[in-house]
Design a binder for these strands. Structure first.
Length: 811
DNA sequence: CAGTGAGCGAGCTTCCGCTTGACTT
């Protein structure tokens, strides 16, 4: 039996380490934390100096008993969780939960997974650092207090199941404020002037493009300028300046930079990047993907050096160690890099291959020489004694260095026409002819909305959130419907172009698209209302510096200079009274309400606010005798901008549109768009139809079309015991995606090669057996929504089983 | 993806950071 038990955080790591350590060591994984604050209620004993109430979560119970069994068999336990605040706490929770004795355990940590690092760690064991553990407890308790005291306020004041927290609420604030900047933005127009010159006789002929070094504010100014140009018949090159420049490679990937580059270069979402990286990590191809460190092991640097030397030559090698500049970095791991630098590519899905290649290139490039460039700037004189000049610049790469492998992308869209070009052989004093010149009206750009990846970058910059939480945070704020992805078509905008050629000036109007935006983050009405409410009542928590400030205090705790419960006490004594105050201010469910006015028809008040199902309009008040009427806002409408007329119009639906076959016809808008309702059935309206204007005739046409479709839908029925609609009936139907079999509430696709109408019952049953149905039954759908309910059931079952065991006689 | 269109009463929701796997009669 093995005498030594090593516990690490990740199972992939466990596997690797076990190989290094040999047969005297058993290596297990804790799969992260094994204990947490009680899931229900606050989980903190406020009356007892904030004592945390810990429990092993249900899904960790089995693991903990396996760990316990291994501990009981081992002589020595090596707690090898990561060397950071969370890692220290993981070790301590293991120590507490598994009942380790002080003489029985060693605390060790390694920053890279190499044989040397592991043996070095084993030779240098230490004790658990209680101060660091306390810093983690302070972090954990503070986050729980903030989250579990703020969220219920939102349930009462705005809508159920909302949430707030130190990280997510600030993320929403960033997005909301950016949207306000965009709303307030006034774009300004100015004329950009470009010109093309030709060299006059003598020497080698050439052509050169240049731009005026200032923009002209008005059309009059631009016209006047072109007219003055017209009168000049020779231009002189005033200066030619060439300067050497250098570009250095970016640091190897951290979680956040990987997410940004994968988004820009590969179009991956933040969570997609993480799951692909996880696959690469599990198959041993890259190092750990949740890291804030840019550090590379000496092993990796040497391997890169060898690869670069072999592939590109020695002068391309320049090894470097980068240093982390992000706030609050804990650097328990290496940067994200290939495990084996000599593997330039990898196998697997195409996503895995692409991401791997990106990581390989970034790592290799980080150890390559700077690129060397020459930047040449040419100025062309226009008028005597005036500062306005035409300027042309070009760039030549004299040594490509790391650019040979990799260039980091930027978020900024390239400014139009600023691409650097190779310049012809130009000499000072050269005389030029003007070929043509264009003055184009250009508009200043509004601020850019955040993308998932640029939001991550901003959060990291502010020191908010950790590598393991960036992706989940972004999902949370979308799941809560605080923010959503944009899909804005944009509108046409006219701009003016003045063109001078052969002494003539033409004046043209052109159009361009503006305001289009896709997959960027934008606040919803709910997000705006929640954000405004929280920033008003809890400015401290929503402050961009809040996390950085409390992190400083956690650091004091971590070095033993501060008692963690004192710190929490100071915080709570300030925070909690505001919670109480907030609960007592405002009527419930009225936050963010906008009174639009009085409905002229009924004389009742019309207001807009966030309701149980999102933004809505209310007609009447609770105090009225009659119950108020409610209606949800439509897509594209928002609380802040909806007018009373638009609001009143929403109550016109559902709209009666006469009768057909002595039954009522109504038109309305539902979850799936506009529809007409007839005889208890719903028929979706085609895109060009409007429920506010659709006529009885048009509606009847739709009903008949639907009837015809339904008739064609049914190809064949094999009746069951209970007739053709019975539970065991087999139906062959024509659906949107071709013929299919419906049986026992599930659907089975029929292959295109099969003649559906000719199928026998036997053949149908064969298809049912062999085809996998993708249909979710109603039960499954429900269960997916309420997995927690099943979890509970499971627990009850488990407990029953335990009881039985206990009752059973012992051997 | 195979068919849809909320609205009651009771009890529920929620945080951030570590880590993967995703029940069966």
């Amino acid at each position: 039996m093995q005498k030594n038990l090593v516990i690490v955080e990740s199972p992939a790591k466990a596997k690797t380490i076990e190989k290094f350590l040999g047969k005297d060591y058993k290596v297990m994984s804790s799969y992260g934390h094994i204990r947490d604050l009680k899931k229900k209620d606050l989980g903190i004993d406020l009356a007892n100096s904030y004592r945390p109430l810990y429990e092993v979560p249900a899904d960790k119970e089995k693991l903990v008993s396996e760990l316990q069994a291994a501990v009981n068999k081992a002589d020595v336990v090596w707690l090898a969780s990561d060397e950071d605040r969370e890692g220290e706490a993981i070790s301590w929770h293991l120590y507490e939960t598994l009942g380790l004795r002080d003489k029985q355990y060693h605390r060790i940590a390694f920053h890279e997974i190499t044989k040397n690092a592991i043996f070095h760690a084993i030779e240098n064991p230490r004790r658990i650092n209680r101060d660091l553990v306390n810093a983690q407890q302070a972090r954990r308790v503070l986050d729980r207090i903030v989250g579990f005291e703020l969220s219920p306020i939102l349930w009462r004041k705005i809508k159920p199941a909302l949430s707030a927290g130190r990280v997510q609420s600030v993320a929403v604030r960033l997005i909301t404020e950016r949207e306000r900047e965009i709303d307030a933005f006034q774009s300004e127009a100015a004329y950009r002037v470009q010109a093309t010159f030709l060299k006059k006789e003598g020497g080698t002929p050439y052509q050169i493009n240049a731009e005026l070094n200032k923009r002209l504010k008005t059309k009059e100014e631009a016209l006047e300028f072109l007219n003055r140009l017209k009168g000049i018949n020779a231009f002189t090159i005033d200066s030619v300046v060439t300067k050497p420049a250098k570009k250095s490679p970016a640091a190897p990937f951290t979680t956040s930079t990987l997410q940004q580059e994968a988004a820009r270069k590969l179009g991956f979402s933040v969570s997609q990047t993480m799951s692909v990286a996880q696959k690469l990590y599990e198959s041993g191809k890259i190092t750990y993907m949740r890291t804030d460190s840019v550090h590379l092991s000496s092993l990796a640097i040497n391997a890169s050096k060898a690869e670069i030397g072999e592939a590109y030559g020695k002068k391309y090698v320049k090894t470097r160690q980068f240093s982390t500049k992000s706030k609050g970095a804990q650097e328990a791991h290496e940067a994200i890099r290939p495990t084996y630098m000599n593997a330039h590519q990898t196998t697997g899905t195409s996503q895995e291959q692409k991401l791997y290649e990106l990581i390989w290139k970034r790592t290799i490039a980080s150890q390559m020489a700077d690129a060397e460039l020459e930047r040449t700037t040419v100025t062309i004189n226009i008028f005597e004694d005036e500062d306005v000049k035409f300027v042309s610049s070009g760039e030549v790469i004299t040594f490509d260095g790391f650019l040979r492998v990799y260039l980091e992308s930027t978020d900024d869209e390239p400014a139009d026409n600023e691409e650097s070009t190779l310049l012809p052989p130009i000499m000072r004093k050269d005389i030029l002819d003007l070929k043509e010149s264009t003055a184009t009206e250009r508009f200043t750009q509004r601020p850019a909305r955040y993308s998932e990846a640029s939001l991550v970058r901003k959060l990291e910059e502010l020191g908010i959130g950790r590598p393991s939480t960036y992706a989940p945070t972004i999902s949370t704020i979308q799941n809560r419907e605080y923010v959503e992805k944009t899909n804005i078509e944009g509108t046409d905008r006219e701009y003016n172009v003045l063109h001078l050629k052969k002494g003539k000036i033409t004046d043209a109007i052109k159009t361009e698209k503006t305001g289009a935006d896709k997959n960027k983050l934008k606040p919803t009405d709910t997000g705006i209302v929640v954000n405004d409410y929280l920033t008003e009542f809890f400015p401290r928590i929503l402050d961009y510096n809040f996390t950085a400030d409390v992190e400083k205090e956690f650091d004091y705790v971590a070095v033993g200079a501060e008692v963690w419960t004192d710190m929490i006490d100071r915080f709570y004594k300030k925070f909690h009274p505001v919670v109480e105050e907030a609960l007592n201010t405002h009527e419930d469910h009225k936050v963010g309400e906008r009174i639009l006015g009085i409905d002229p028809k009924s004389g009742k008040q019309i207001s807009a606010k966030i309701g149980r199902f999102g933004p809505m309009i209310q007609l009447g008040t609770q105090d009225d005798e009659e119950k108020p009427r409610f209606v949800s806002l439509r897509k594209g409408q928002s609380l802040g901008t909806i007018t009373i007329e638009e609001a009143i119009k929403l109550f016109d639906l559902p709209r009666p549109i006469g009768e057909y076959e002595e039954k009522e016809l109504t038109a309305s808008i539902g979850k799936f768009g506009p529809y007409i309702k007839f005889d208890g059935k719903f028929i979706s309206l085609p895109k060009d139809a409007d429920p506010y204007t659709i006529t009885q005739e048009e509606a009847i046409e739709l009903i008949e079309a639907k009837r015809k479709q339904d008739r064609e839908k049914l190809i064949k029925i094999f009746e069951g015991k209970d007739g053709k609609d019975g539970k065991d009936a087999v139906q062959i139907l024509n659906g949107r995606y071709g013929p299919y079999i419906a049986y026992k509430e599930k659907n089975y696709k029929i292959a295109k090669t099969v003649d559906a109408a000719a199928l026998t019952l036997k053949e149908c049953m064969e298809i049912i057996k062999t085809t996998k149905s993708k249909t979710k039954t109603k039960v499954e759908k429900k269960e997916k929504k309420k997995t927690k309910v099943t979890e509970k059931k499971k627990k009850v079952l488990e407990e029953e089983a335990k009881e039985k065991k206990a009752k059973a006689p012992k051997k």
